[in-house]
Design a binder for these strands. Structure first.
Lengths: 246, 246
DNA sequence: AAGTGGTCTAGACCACACT
DNA sequence: GTGTGGTCTAGACCACTTG
């Protein structure tokens, strides 16, 4: 399972190996829906590790809504529901599995470097820093679906060029810059379409959009993005799993 | 911090005590935004526990979006953003903190016991079980905001009466029955208002709503609720934090 | 009573950041 | 180099359910 990253041999931690393996077993119905999987001691012996490592791996799957652990009883596979949303840097990544890049298109409406207004600077937690301002239209088969307004500090994401925007900014950040995403704080609401929405998303006077506001963190603790995306309501769907941890 | 539950002395685990204490320190700005909190060894000494217990407590706060941990650097308090959504059994619990029960009203439109149609039975993962069907209108200051369609198996939630519906079903389940919620799988989308929405939410022909679909699990592994809530778009807001754990 | 998950420890070692 | 978080172990004991 080891890979080469940045020219170095990268060996994933044991709990991640166990996590991946059990996740595969669930997805391939080797561990069947609503059934119990082997107990912690057995798994620890099977994977040649401690119980705690097994628990850590299983807890990840609980967090993703794939397992439920019941004290005194066992660990069970949940009904196969919509899995937890991965962080959608792309805003359209839900589709990127369904549609190849041939069908996806990003049209850059505006790409400039600005001094952020106070409101944006606060969201990005910066002072006196230049930022990129990006306005993009995301389409599937030339059908416009998402109008995206993105702000990113230059010093956090250096070297961003217009051609990156025509593809995936996410790919640039993770693959070319080698950064990892830590988290995203999001907020979802509905609203009437504004003039830009009507213009670019081909909406009529009476239409509505779903607005997804997002603040994204890198693993180094820096906020790298604040964005507002307006989604045509008929193509928007957001799935997630909330787990009670306390 | 110990409490009496079901006539027994309940002593919370150490990591939960630490979690609560640090959460309070963040909310009261004893640990300030963007600043580093003490390292794991110090906290372990301070709380008289092992490093692992501290890590477990801090990881909960990372999951809630309040902290960020950086290997080699430290643990930092994040910008105070909207916290992670708690499981909203109530559908209106976001308001229950803002508005007292005097302002909140639940009007029961339908409360019946039925044999579920196939689609609902599948969502609830049951066969040959009777279920409650509940249609409620939730209002704030007599302003109708949410139309809620709920299905619950009788054998999972016994003894539900109409007067419970006028208050909070959540309170009945957690306080009177003493059950705990494990998780909720949710899905959010927008849609045009249907005839019921127009009727009960006072919408016009052109209006639209936000639909929140939800499947809820108890700690005993049973699904106790499948619901669809239609929210007037101008009063809907959903916040959450997505954390990259893998 | 037996089985299973949950909590917790003390300590070891590694990976990474900072300076 | 020092400090910090991340991983991992072996084992102990507790809480809960009943496969």
């Amino acid at each position: 399972m080891e890979t080469i990253e940045k020219g170095r041999l990268y060996m994933p931690p044991k709990y991640k190996v166990v996590y991946e393996d059990i996740k595969n077993k669930i997805n391939n119905y080797i561990y069947k829906t609503n059934e119990k999987i082997p107990d912690g001691d057995s798994l620890a012996e099977c994977y040649n590790c401690s119980k705690l490592t097994i628990a850590k791996a299983l807890d990840l799957l609980v967090q993703e809504g794939m397992l439920i652990r019941r004290q005194g009883s066992g660990t069970y596979v949940k009904e196969n529901l919509s899995n937890r949303t991965t962080i959608e840097l792309d805003n359209i990544s839900g589709y990127s599995k369904k549609f190849s890049t041939e069908h996806l298109k990003s049209t850059v409406i505006d790409f400039s470097i600005i001094t952020p207004p106070k409101e944006i600077a606060e969201k990005l937690n910066i002072t006196d820093e230049y930022i990129y301002k990006i306005l993009r239209l995301r389409s599937v088969d030339n059908d416009p679906q998402i109008l995206e307004e993105t702000y990113m500090p230059i010093y956090v994401i250096p070297g961003l060029k217009e051609h990156h925007l025509e593809g995936s900014i996410y790919d640039y950040i993770t693959n070319e810059l080698g950064f990892k995403i830590q988290s995203a704080h999001i907020s979802i609401k509905g609203d009437e379409a504004n003039s830009n929405d009507k213009l670019y998303l081909n909406l009529t006077e009476s239409d509505f959009i779903i607005e997804l506001e997002k603040i994204c963190y890198l693993e180094n603790g820096k906020i790298f993005e604040y964005s507002k995306t307006h989604h045509r309501y008929d193509v928007f769907k957001f799935n997630t799993v909330l787990v009670n941890n306390i």
